[in-house]
Simulated assay, not measured.
Amino acid sequence: MTIRPNAPMPAELRHFMRAGQHPSRSVACPHCGAGEHKPCRVRSTGRTLPDPHPARRTAWAEATACCPRCQVTPGFPCHTDGIPLRDQVHARRHLEAEETAA
Rank of each mutant, 00 (worst) to 15 (best):
V42E: 14
L49K: 08
L49A: 02
D81L: 13
P74L: 07
H37L: 03
C40K: 01
A59K: 07
R69A: 15
R47F: 07
S44I: 11
G75W: 03
E36S: 05
R56T: 01
P77T: 08
G75D: 08
R43E: 12
I83H: 10
C78E: 04
C78D: 15
S44A: 15
G33S: 04
C66V: 05
S44D: 12
P52A: 12
V89D: 04
P39Q: 10
G75V: 06
H79L: 05
D87V: 02
P84R: 05
G46E: 07
H90V: 04
P52Y: 02
D51W: 09
G33H: 01
R69N: 13
A55H: 07
P54H: 10
T80I: 14
P84M: 03
R57H: 02
R69I: 11
Q88H: 15
H53N: 01
H31M: 09
P68D: 05
I83M: 10
K38H: 06
I83L: 10
C32M: 05
P52L: 03
R56V: 02
R57P: 00
A59C: 02
H90G: 07
G33L: 06
W60N: 00
R47Y: 04
E62K: 14
W60P: 00
T45F: 06
C67Y: 10
H37V: 00
R43V: 15
R92K: 11
G35Q: 00
R43I: 14
L85N: 12
P54K: 03
C67K: 05
P54Q: 07
C67M: 09
H53T: 05
C67V: 08
C32L: 06
R57Y: 02
K38P: 00
C67W: 09
R57A: 06
A55D: 14
Q71F: 11
D81A: 15
P84Y: 04
A91V: 10
T45Q: 03
R43H: 02
H53E: 12
P30Q: 03
R86G: 01
E62P: 00
F76E: 15
R93W: 04
D87L: 08
P77S: 09
F76K: 14
R93L: 09
A65F: 03
A63M: 09
I83V: 15
C70Q: 06
R43A: 14
P50S: 14
C70D: 14
Q88G: 02
Q71Y: 08
E62F: 01
P84V: 08
H31V: 08
A63V: 07
D81F: 13
